[in-house]
Simulated scan of single mutants.
Amino acid sequence: MSWSLLGEQLELLGPDIVAVALCAARLVPVAFLCPLLGGQAAPTTVKLSLVLSLSLFLRLVAGVGLSTPVESPLVLGALVLKELVYGTSVGLVAALPFDAARMGGRFIDLFRGTSAEASLPVAGSRESATGDGLYQLLVMLVVTGGLFPAVVSGLLRGFGVVGLGAFVPSESAALFVVRLAGGAMATGLAVGAPIAAAALAVDCLMGMASRAAPQMNLQELGAPLRILGGGAILWLGIGVLCERLLAGVMDLEGTLLLLGEAAR
């Protein structure tokens, strides 16, 4: 094959290469932020391979492409930057229900006193067994419960709502993401509120009992009662907590559509 023929073939493939690159630029932040496409647990090679596969699917099967050709490398760089910014917004929104589960678990462990940081103030870290447990449990429920295809479909249908290069970094889109982040924080606090109330009730009862019977050393019973009582409430209410968190995942498809409407 001559160099001229190879050059002609590359020129013909130019629009396809640009479209795949822009699709990948939008999906890369989503793959690194949303646990359903890899998140922090999957190796980087796996996430990048998934991004490339989805980008090829969007171009070759779904026909996603630019409406106008790219005229210069500067224009291509600007389009890649726009797709990265919009992909980061989409990834943040898609990861919010799972971050709410992790925040709720850390809130629970903070009041129960079972986190590594609370147990070992000097040597402990900020790890939270309940936070990681609720996070992984929510991921498992989404993947095995039939919501995974709906979330991925919402992510891919976003290319039809906001075409390649059509993202406009508007104030309404930024405020929309901020409101969703605030809602996720509220969900995390609501998830941990019953256990926090139980821990405060135990402290209140121990305080009143100590005042009523000062000769009895009841202060050492506070921490074990908080841990055991909070764990019992968490075990009994895990179904309600999962339903609350799954409701956020079920709303993701409509939320991503609203984000696309505000961003174009």
Rank of each mutant, 00 (worst) to 15 (best):
M1R: 11
M1L: 14
S4Q: 14
E8S: 14
E11A: 15
G14L: 12
I17K: 10
V18M: 07
V20E: 07
A25G: 06
R26S: 10
R26C: 10
R26Y: 05
L27K: 00
L27V: 00
V28R: 07
V30K: 01
V30H: 00
A31M: 05
L33K: 05
C34D: 03
L36W: 05
P43G: 09
T45W: 11
T45M: 13
T45V: 13
L54D: 02
L54E: 02
L60Q: 13
A62M: 13
A62R: 13
L66S: 07
S67V: 11
T68R: 14
P69D: 09
P69T: 06
E71V: 14
L79C: 10
Y86N: 03
G87C: 08
T88M: 14
V90G: 03
V93I: 15
A94S: 13
A94K: 00
A94F: 00
A95P: 02
A95M: 06
A95H: 01
P97N: 06
F98R: 03
A101G: 05
R102C: 01
M103A: 14
M103R: 11
F107P: 01
D109A: 08
L110N: 12
R112T: 09
A116N: 13
A118Y: 04
A118H: 09
L120D: 12
L120A: 12
P121L: 12
P121N: 11
R126V: 08
E127A: 15
E127R: 11
S128P: 09
G131N: 03
Y135N: 05
L137Y: 02
L141E: 08
L141Y: 03
V142S: 00
G146C: 08
F148R: 03
F148M: 11
A150G: 01
V152K: 00
S153A: 14
G154V: 02
L155C: 01
L155F: 02
L156N: 01
L156R: 03
G158Y: 02
F159S: 03
G160Y: 08
V162Q: 00
G163E: 09
G165E: 06
A166G: 07
A166P: 04
P169F: 10
P169A: 11
E171R: 10
A173N: 01
A173S: 15
L175M: 13
F176Q: 00
F176Y: 15
R179Y: 09
L180P: 00
A181Y: 05
G183H: 04
A186D: 11
T187P: 04
T187G: 09
V191S: 03
P194L: 09
A196S: 14
A196D: 01
A201D: 06
G207T: 06
A209W: 08
A212H: 05
G222V: 15
G222D: 12
P224N: 10
I227F: 08
G229Q: 10
G229S: 12
G230M: 08
G230Q: 05
A232V: 15
A232W: 12
A232G: 09
W235E: 11
W235L: 15
L236A: 15
I238T: 08
C242E: 07
C242Y: 04
R244I: 05
A247Q: 13
A247L: 12
D251E: 15
E253Y: 06
E253G: 03
T255A: 08
L256S: 04
A262P: 02
R264T: 12
